[in-house]
């Protein structure tokens, strides 16, 4: 699903607000890399009192373009409106929103536990293996494990380690790849090429500043 700027919905009789059930959506926002844009994006959610469950910003497949990955649970109707508001921002290039079935996604978690505890409990070792945990750091006093996966997978190890004393736990924001996406290269070309109107000729002329402006 994308909020293509040029496609209109033809949904006769579909009542407003009945945008279906609330479910988890992942919004992917391609943006220019600009100070203050995070705030501009965040207030679109806070203005509507929408609680962002997870937010990640990172570089994208294209240099100088950033990619926001935002997760929240809402109806599709609300998500679509928010996506259009996001896309309206000057520095936002494109917005996609997807259900969980339409994306490949991962979250990463770190767990700090006492090394003594791990060493003593053979059972824990087996559980760690089952959870696909990797040891990142092993020190005399503590060990840090890492798990990458869906929420249930990272949560599973929390449940396992808690009885043995989980000293610290942290989970990252979701990052997601859209299954159907062909990347942003083509779109960007379109954005850079199709827009300039006839006036661009004048602009090219002005680009030769040194020659033209001899003030």
């Amino acid at each position: 699903m994308s909020t293509d700027k040029n496609i209109v919905s033809v949904l006769p009789g579909s009542p407003l607000g009945a945008g279906g059930l609330r479910q988890e959506f992942t919004i992917t926002v391609y943006t220019e890399n600009q100070v203050g844009l995070l705030n501009r994006i965040a207030i679109i959610f806070s203005r509507r009192k929408l609680n962002i469950e997870s937010l990640n910003t990172s570089p994208s497949e294209i240099e100088s373009i950033s990619r926001f990955t935002i997760v929240l649970t809402e109806t599709e109707d609300v998500i679509r409106k928010v996506a259009r508001q996001l896309e309206k921002q000057v520095e936002v290039l494109k917005v996609y929103y997807n259900t969980n079935e339409e994306i490949i996604w991962q979250e990463m978690a770190l767990y700090k536990v006492s090394t003594d505890m791990i060493a003593e409990k053979v059972k824990v070792e087996r559980l760690l293996r089952e959870c696909g945990a990797n040891a990142v750091v092993i020190r005399k006093d503590y060990t840090v494990f890492e798990v990458t996966g869906h929420r249930e997978e990272t949560q599973k190890l929390v449940d396992v380690l808690e009885p043995y004393g989980l000293i610290e736990f942290v989970r990252s924001a979701r990052i997601a790849i859209i299954k159907d996406s062909c990347g942003f290269h083509e779109k960007l070309k379109e954005f850079e090429e199709t827009q300039p109107g006839e006036e661009i000729v004048e602009n090219e002329y002005l680009n030769r500043q040194e020659e033209v402006f001899s003030m």
């Binding site: 220019e32 000057v90 827009q195 300039p196 661009i200 602009n203 002005l206 402006f213």
Partner: peptide, 10 residues
């Protein structure tokens, strides 16, 4: 010099 802006890609 000053160039008018006609296009912002985003």
């Amino acid at each position: 010099g000053y160039e008018r802006c006609n296009h912002i890609r985003s």
